[in-house]
Design a binder for these strands. Structure first.
Lengths: 236, 236
DNA sequence: CGACGATTTGAATAGGATCAATGGGAGTGG
DNA sequence: CCACTCCCATTGATCCTATTCAAATCGTCG
């Protein structure tokens, strides 16, 4: 673990209030590694040996059953994954792989659990992190069950555009294959969804997209802050 | 709050290790109420005023967007719901209503948050509860995305049969309308799914069901402990 | 240039949803 | 005890969304 990364990690809400000694213990036991794209990090059914933190890059969580496979979510910096399995000391429910070159922090689960027992501030920070993950999954679930593929794409485009400055154009932060699985559809379907959105002013060239009729698009998308807004800010 | 209920509540894992004084404070502020079926308890978007505990009966969590509505999960005794929103002091992401006559404990969220700050054992118990809820949602999500409606029904029947003693017969613990939404399908579709399962030895009469070819049914269902098994028991 | 992977397009199919209508069982009132 | 009613469950027909399989196209990189 390179020492220059320590401050970044230590500022994460999950660790920020920890006793320094306990944090140092955790970091001594941890590994920070860089992985190429498409590397399998964990596999569902394995026991939870490590807690993972995505420091840079992107990890896709997915699951299999029968012959089928489904993307569950994409994890972007800075965020943990499979925290629940680590705390309960049970098997992973999901598999995870990098979608791009990524820097990942691995912390042995036994150390996490010890810190959880010893450090009250850490235990409380874990609650906040878990609650956030939980709500993110619920949002995903709502997005998936209450919207069609076209609507999911429209809303996603609006969110990305807003994040990139609201200038009516945006650059997709992942390839279309990954975007498709994030949206819970096949690449073919994504392609068709883009065509469907053309009359709503969505102009695609590669990963550059312009939204020339944001109003129309918003009319179709019907954004909903209880699905799209990740902020969980104070009640307004 | 009737005193005879106190011991039951106090034995819940969530409260069992709390300081007695803190627990007493919580219970003084709480209400235990009985609701008829189909009563709306919470509505998505409302701020989280109470933590709810289903003591008896059943609560359906659902969500709306556009004109659509989707059941997110059914909560059965004894379990909390919307704990994450209460802890983060943000708006509910889901609405909830009773599906049958139910006894529900309501605890003001501010009291929950105070106990969370003051009582370390409670804070840790909350982590376990949250982690369990989280994994339950992930399981639901997998069930939904990796299986067809017929497969979901087949697996559910096998689980219920096992819970009721594995004697090749079972009694549905809810009406078919509720079962349908639990399985993420319409009542019409559930009806057809039962027909599809007839060749696999599923004999339905009302809410009494016999499984005469459990092997065949299991072959179709392909049960998966990472989806169907709620135990989260020790690894191994 | 040539090859390879990613994306797009097309055609056929499956899984569900929706709308409409019918059947059936439990409870109510006569 | 029987008719009536209401609600749930079932059945049928049709529509829509999305998946699958196949093939063409595009783009990039060696």
């Amino acid at each position: 673990m390179r020492s220059e990364d320590l401050p970044v990690i230590g500022q994460l809400p999950l660790f920020a209030d920890m006793d320094e000694e306990h944090f140092a213990d955790l970091m001594r036991a941890a590994y920070l590694q860089t992985f190429p794209p498409q590397v399998d990090l964990i596999s569902e059914g394995d026991r939870a040996d490590f807690l993972y933190v995505v420091v840079e890059g992107c990890v896709e969580l997915y699951a299999r059953s029968n012959g089928r496979e489904a993307t569950m979510s994409l994890v972007r910096p800075v965020s943990t994954f499979i925290l629940a399995a680590v705390l309960k000391d049970v098997r992973y429910l999901m598999s995870g792989r990098t979608t791009e070159k990524s820097r990942i922090l691995l912390i042995p689960s036994e150390d996490i659990r010890r810190a959880f027992r010893q450090d009250d501030a850490f235990a409380r920070a874990i609650v906040v992190e878990l609650a956030s993950r939980y709500r993110a999954v619920v949002r995903d679930h709502k997005n998936q069950k209450l919207r069609t593929g076209v609507e999911r794409l429209a809303n996603r485009l609006l969110v990305i555009e807003r994040d990139q400055g609201g200038k009516g154009r945006l650059t997709l932060p992942y390839d279309k294959r990954t975007l498709a699985s994030l949206l819970g559809m096949t690449p073919e379907n994504l392609s068709r969804a883009f065509n469907t959105l053309k009359p709503y002013g969505v102009e695609v060239s590669g990963s550059e997209i312009r939204l020339t009729k944001a109003g129309d698009l918003r009319g179709l998308a019907k954004p909903n802050e209880l699905i799209d807004d990740d902020t969980d800010g104070p009640v307004g």
